[in-house]
Amino acid sequence: MVRLIDVEMKYGNGTEALKGVNLRIDDGEFVFLVGASGSGKSTILKLITAEIAPTKGRLMVNGYNLNNIRPRQVPHMRRTLGVVFQDFRLIEKKTVKENLAFVMRAVGASKRETRRRLDYMLGLVELTDKGDCYPYQLSGGEQQRVAIARALMNNPSMIVADEPTGNLDPDRSKEIMTLLSRINDMGTTVLVVTHEKKLVDSMNKRVVAIRDGVIISDEMGGYYNEKD
């Protein structure tokens, strides 16, 4: 669940990245966020993950009011989110399993619980036999699947992905989108920032388009008629 009400974001250097954004994403939705480079897509995601705070407007995420959230609460809010990045951001010195396990350790889960969840997640992203590999031993698509598995480890209610297919070829991209769609079918809310027009069109989901910090269209069915 995400609510942005008249949100404005002005960075320290004076850049107005968002100029009054209203956005509502309900539990269980699958939403694409599209727009030209520099239009403010990543800024919206950073607001949702509480990396930055809005200069104006109200912001709610999964029941947390981010306008007056206490710093101690931020980790708890983040555990309700799974974050996926374009560049995967796996820890290079840890194996796939260790990369996944530490997320659960960070929230104080038991070893047995962690192992059970680990096996399940590796199965879900079809990497059961790569558990002991290091990230550099995997292809880009495989690395991104590990990152998605990591995002799901704590069983978050929402996945937030910033151009998850930006570094992948079309076939891998399709695979990742399909995986995200499957995860959505299992009940997890998904918000994906992407540039892949064909993919967006083919998936028939809700598409929110943003330009220069303003939302210019928000429609079901998924088309992408912005030229960029």
């Binding site: 990396e51 980790p75 708890h76 983040r78 951001r89 350790r105 990591r150 480890m153």
Partner: peptide, 16 residues
Amino acid sequence: KEEIAIMKMCGATNAF
């Protein structure tokens, strides 16, 4: 640094 940022993004507390 990366690693710490990732941990924090996954909801790790400062103490952890």
